[in-house]
Design a protein around this nucleic acid. Sequence first.
DNA 1: TCTGGGGTCCTAGGACCC
DNA 2: TCTGGGGTCCTAGGACCC
Length: 308
Amino acid sequence: MEIFHQLSGLVEQVSVDEAFIDVTDLPEPAEQIAHALQARVKLDTNLPCSIGAASNKLVAKIATDTGKNQSRTDGYPQAILCVPAGTERIFLSPLPVRAMWGVGPKMESILLGMGLRTIGDIANCSVDRLERRFGKSGVDLHQHALGIDNRPVTVSYEAKSISQEVTFARDTADLLFLRRTLHELAIKVGYRMRCEGLCARVIRLKLRFADFTTHTRQVLLQAPTDQDSVIAGEAEGLLMKLWQPERPVRLIGVGGANLVEHVHQLTLWESETQKERKLLIALDELREKYGKEAVQRADHIRKRHKEE
DNA sequence: TCTGGGGTCCTAGGACCC
DNA sequence: TCTGGGGTCCTAGGACCC
C-alpha cells in the first residue's frame, strides 16, 4: 500500500491485498505504469501481483481477474491486462456472467435460467427484463455489462460497522459458555471502536445454529456507546431473544453499527459511564504495552472462578 | 468446497406519522 | 369513524465480496 501511495494520492484500499489506484493524472500510458508498479512491488517486497487497467473500477477489477486466470500456468499469477478506453464492452462481452463483479452463485443460476450465459448476453438483454427480475440492481447490472461504471476511486474510508464473531469447534448448548464468549467478543468490539474513535448506535447479535441457519437481532440505543459493558449487556439481552435450549449453537457474533464519531459529553459531573470510559482507555493502553492478557478485571475473574 | 471471519449493499415488511 | 396515499425509520435476512 505504501508503494501505491508513492505512485498516486488517489488510492482506494479494497482489502488487505487489493486496491484501486487512480492514475488519470499521470503522463505515462497505463501499460507502462502497470509494468513499473509490478516490478517495484516485486523488488521491494518479493511479492507477485496482478494488475488490471481500465477507464473505470469495474472493468479494471474484471481485467485483473481475467489476466490472473489466463496466466494461471505455473507458480504465481503475475498478470497485467489493459483494456483501452472505448473497448470495455467488447472486452466484457465473451466473459461468462459469473465473471461480473457482484454476480455470485445465486444470481448466476438465475441468469442462466433466463438464457443469459455471457456478459454480452446481459448487455443485449432489455433493461426492463433485468429490472423486473432484479429490481434496481438489474439496471446497474445492465450498465455494468456495457462496461459503464461511474463510481469514483474513494480515498477516505469510513467503517459502517465493527464486529467480532467466533465459530466453535463443536456446537454448544451451554448458555453460560455463550454468555462468557459474548463478553469476550464485546470487549474486542469496544476496544476497536475506541481505537477508531467511534461509538455505535446499534448493537447487533448474530447466532448460527448447528443446521447453519443464521439469525440476527439488533437494538437501537438511546445514546451511542463504545463501552464494553454496554455492548455486552445489550448483546446478552438479544441473545435471550434468540436462545433456544434445544438448539446447539455453532457461531456467535457481536457488532456495532450506525457508527458515529465519539463526542465527549458536557455534563457538570462525571457520570459513571464516563468514569468507566477513562478506565477502559487506561486498560487499552496497558494492553497495547504489555499484551492482550496483561490486564483483566478482577470482578470478571471472580465471576469466572465462581462459575467454574 | 458442507462452510472462517470479517465486511457491504439491497430488499421487504411493519410501525408510525401526516 | 374509516379510508387512502406517501414518507421515514427500524428490523431481519439474503446475496455477495475478499
